[in-house]
């Protein structure tokens, strides 16, 4: 019998995950949304290490190391994205990005482009391959020294 009871850890992991989901859905700050995603990853990591202990092999812990790696990648990418988004609107509010259209561009009012039609003319002069056995005509150009 393992010293650590598995079910309690699963309950804690599930609770952390759900709190992360609620935070992800409700917060409007870009950075807090990312932190809520990290909170969900914490809940998953608790589950993984608990199962690793339960089964008595290190695979859950190895998987948690990969989770850490991906979390670090995600944090770096999210941070640079948030920085470039912040530069545009000077705010971390997610509502400012609800509409992806750009406001300073004129609204499109013209007629839409005609549909593309492809017609093949049977009389068109298609290129032919040079017959083998004869020297092809070469363009006069700069000669390369051999």
């Amino acid at each position: 019998m393992t010293a650590t009871v598995l079910e309690s850890q699963l309950v804690v992991g599930a609770t952390l995950f759900i709190l992360g989901v609620v935070g992800f859905l409700t917060r409007r700050n870009l950075i807090l949304i990312m932190l809520s995603a990290e909170l969900m990853l914490h809940g998953v990591s608790i589950n993984l290490t608990a199962f690793s202990r339960y089964h008595g092999n290190p695979q859950g812990q190895v998987f948690t190391i990969f989770v850490l790696t991906i979390a670090a990648c995600e944090a770096g990418l999210a941070l640079s994205l948030i920085l470039s988004l912040y530069q545009r609107r000077k705010s971390l509010d997610i509502f400012l990005w609800g509409k992806l259209g750009e406001d300073d561009l004129p609204v499109f009012t013209g007629t839409p482009a005609p549909p593309i039609t492809v017609s093949v003319d049977p009389n068109v002069d298609l290129p032919h391959l040079t017959p083998a056995g004869r020297m092809p005509k070469t363009q006069p150009g700069p000669q390369t020294k051999t």
Binding site: L25, T26, R27, R28, N29, L92
Partner: peptide, 8 residues
């Protein structure tokens, strides 16, 4: 900031 005071 107002957006931290108003959750979605």
């Amino acid at each position: 900031t107002s957006y931290d005071q108003q959750p979605i």
